[in-house]
């Protein structure tokens, strides 16, 4: 970004000095705070999403986030509210459509594709109507660390706390329903209600992640850390902890790199998260090749 160039901060390989230099700017402190909140909430929800194979719903939600944020900018309200409003509404719509009966197939995918393209086109319209967007629509699409206010961090933290609390409450039955929906339903677990509730949590998590990575690269924090964790372990608690750790690592490393380099934040976060995913696969392949006798932990499914 331009700001990073004019200030010309130089990376010194001295972590203490570097952090002190970065945190001298209030916007960087806010960016790190927001990043921390998002990197805890998104991988935790994303872990369940990967387990439930709902990446497609996550993709749709993230696409809808863009027009929401663009409309919020156009109307002059906080983009956080725009992201949250759009994602939660879309989650409700998806949940309602699921209720009415599910069917895959050609026409369904054509409908989804049409809705996604139309949503993106609406976002583009709002951005063109509003000329003075900081960094253009690229900030909304690919993420930025500039201009996160303390109020936004507070809102992110509040929403994140609610999401995590709800996830903790429904975590056990949700895990049961995700792994074996039929048995869970037979045992009296409200599978449908849990599915709809989870979609709402997913909407909130997508909205939060979109503000760091941009709405097109939400997968970097939502899917990649969770997928990496599931490559390494199938145990739920350990997997959740690992996913959050990977998310935090990718997000903070991305913020540091984006501060010192002119390239967008979303690029760094996706690259670090993707590198972790590749390393995890490589590590598992190596471990499998070295000790075939050792019991393997793998991705369920």
């Amino acid at each position: 970004m331009l700001l990073a160039e004019t200030l010309a901060p130089a990376f010194s390989w001295n972590p203490v000095a570097d952090l002190r230099e970065m945190w001298a700017y209030p916007f960087m402190v806010n960016a790190f705070r927001a990043g921390a909140v998002v990197a805890v909430v998104a991988p935790a929800v994303g872990w369940f999403m990967v387990l439930r194979r709902q990446t497609f719903a996550g993709h749709t939600l993230s696409v809808v986030a863009f027009p929401g944020a663009a409309l919020a900018t156009l109307l002059g309200i906080s983009t956080t509210l725009g992201y949250l409003g759009a994602c939660l509404t879309a989650a409700l719509v998806i949940a309602a459509l699921r209720e009415r009966g599910r069917s895959g197939g050609a026409e369904e995918s054509a409908a989804t594709a049409t809705v996604q393209a139309f949503a993106l086109a609406c976002g583009f319209l709002f951005v063109t109507l509003y000329k003075g967007l900081l960094g253009g629509p690229q900030a909304l699409l690919f993420g930025t660390f500039l201009g996160i206010t303390t109020g936004q961090v507070g809102l992110l933290a509040a929403v994140g706390a609610v999401v995590l609390a709800l996830l903790a409450v429904i975590g056990r039955p949700l895990l049961f329903a995700s792994i074996d929906g039929d048995v869970a339903a037979a045992r009296g677990v409200p599978v449908r209600l849990l599915g709809a509730g989870f979609l709402l949590l997913l909407g909130a998590a997508t909205a939060e992640a979109g503000q760091i990575t941009g709405s097109l690269l939400v997968f970097a924090l939502l899917v990649m850390p969770a997928a990496t964790a599931q490559v390494l372990t199938a145990r739920p608690v350990l997997g959740l902890v690992l996913a959050v750790a990977f998310g935090l690592g990718a997000c903070w490393l991305g913020l540091i790199a984006a501060f010192y380099q002119p390239y967008p934040l979303g690029f760094f976060v996706t690259t670090f998260a993707f590198a972790g995913f590749l390393l995890a696969h490589l590590g598992r392949a190596l471990a499998g090749a070295l000790g075939r006798a050792a019991p393997r932990t793998g991705v369920p499914a």
Binding site: F56, F219, A220, V223, F267, T270
Partner: peptide, 26 residues
């Protein structure tokens, strides 16, 4: 290949696109 892998790969490719975009504009 399952959609987690594909989704992961393609969001990284898109991220790479933003890298080239910045490279080009700067």
């Amino acid at each position: 290949p399952d959609d987690v892998v594909i989704g992961t790969l393609f969001s990284w490719i898109l991220g790479l696109g933003t890298f080239f975009l910045t490279l080009y504009t700067t």
